[in-house]
Design a binder for these strands. Structure first.
Lengths: 262, 262
DNA sequence: TGGGAGCGAAAAGTCGGATTTATTTGAGTA
DNA sequence: TACTCAAATAAATCCGACTTTTCGCTCCCA
């Protein structure tokens, strides 16, 4: 139960309060602690986790800043309703898509990508600058070069979509980058695509680039939409063939009283 | 120079570390502290602000959690590039739209609303439940009841758009609520609309509701788009008539001539 | 019987200081 | 030139005392 105190590779991730924040955050996002649930008080938490009260407090501050927790004197610290979370926060997405609920919002994910990314491509076609095009071009080239396993193609693929978002020059579209990142990282587990499908995908990416470079908004939007529909089909096929062990992920009003049912 | 220690109305906003976080956050978002700029070290900051080091640390943790700051030993605390901020975070939006840069992203704002909200209306038409419809209905009714000054109509207007977003039942669309909130609160200053325009607006809102209630996705999407285009025109008119004291807000290398084709 | 004032306890908030750890920098050395 | 190591710096952690806010209850008065 003791806490690892190892070094922080490159980002500030090895600090104690970040470890604690991540641990609590993952438990909250996974639903293990449900809405309105109260955390132990600071003294109890610090003893339970084996860290000082200072560390607990800073971890809680981090989660409160993300609107995961609500904290007040006397009442203590409680989990805020999911409705108030910012589901586009990179860390929340990471906790969501690495835990058990990875597939829970797959429909929402694809739907919103299908809304935002074509629009971003359109905007990019209108406003992309030379540097932007260069960036997208490099991503495409890397995708073609990586024509091997799925995993090594994830990075350039991600880079492509992030670059298009950036090329839209719309500050409110960029936050979706975190969502796409989470999506790709989690989808690479189930997309076992053959080589033909991969080549098709690469071409579709390049179609988007060509349209953006040609400053053709309609074509860019359409190309991006085609690309996304293809991956959507891939995901659907993967989900279908991998069996129905996972529920469809459609959350109804009541959070399914499925308690201790093996 | 001393810090006010008044009570926290309802949200946890009167705590020292939140006050400090807000102050620093506003300075960062406003651009007063630019990307990469280093903050004084904790000891200096605590003396400068007249609070303990603990408070400074917790405030910094909050801003770091929002990706506004990057903090490491020895190097100190630095402002992270704007590209990495989550511009859909409620507090960042508040700092952005209450400060001097309120109009900076007005184009981005309208563009993204025009992308997301029609899609949300479409989804709502497909998936809204009775409770959702009730909520939207009440918002519409309140708008009609408030047929007076602009200010009192802001709240139900906001409620309407938030309800539609919620009715989409897509967790990744809800974060836009914060954006719409910031938009409405800041736009109420410049929309000096006459009564005729207001009545038209109310009707357009109700058109959206009707389409959603009729489970007609196409109509819902179209109605929402119409509504947004109207408010977009209103804002453009307001900006034009209020003179050109404010810069166009379009940050681009080349000064693209505003092409506005009917 | 009902409502408001006030009291007490619980929990977070704040403080200051001691100590530890990570990271950079540069001096010294092979 | 490149490599090692030590000093310096700044954050990270811990600790314990004290303050403030807030909830919930009791008690008193209308």
């Amino acid at each position: 139960m003791s806490v690892e105190r190892r070094s922080w590779g490159e980002a500030s991730y090895g600090t104690l309060h970040r470890q604690i924040a991540r641990r609590l955050g993952a438990r909250i996002v996974s639903g293990e602690m449900e809405e309105g649930a109260a955390l132990p008080n600071e003294a109890a938490l610090s003893k339970e986790l084996g860290v000082s009260r200072t560390v607990v407090r800073e971890a809680v501050k981090v989660l409160a800043a993300k609107d995961l927790l609500e904290v007040r004197p006397k009442t203590g610290t409680k989990v805020r309703p999911r409705r108030d979370w910012n589901m586009l926060d990179p860390e929340i997405l990471e906790w969501q898509f690495s835990g058990p609920g990875a597939l829970a919002h797959i429909r929402d994910l694809l739907e919103v990508r299908l809304v935002v990314e074509p629009a971003a491509a359109r905007a990019a076609a209108e406003r992309a600058e030379p540097g932007d095009l260069e960036e997208i071009e490099r991503a495409c080239a890397d995708m073609e070069a990586a024509s091997g396993d799925t995993e090594s193609s994830i990075e350039p693929d991600l880079k492509f979509h992030l670059s298009v978002l950036g090329s839209s020059h719309n500050v409110f579209m960029r936050p979706f980058g975190a969502l796409i990142q989470a999506a790709l990282r989690s989808s690479f587990r189930l997309t076992n695509e053959d080589r033909a499908a991969y080549l098709r995908s690469v071409r579709q990416h390049r179609d988007v680039l060509d349209a953006i470079r040609a400053s053709d908004p309609d074509a860019a939007e359409a190309a991006m939409r085609l690309l996304l529909i293809s991956t959507l089909d891939d995901v659907n096929n993967a989900l279908r063939t991998m069996g129905h062990r996972h529920s469809p992920g459609r959350r109804s009003k009541r959070p399914a009283p499925a308690k201790r049912k093996a």
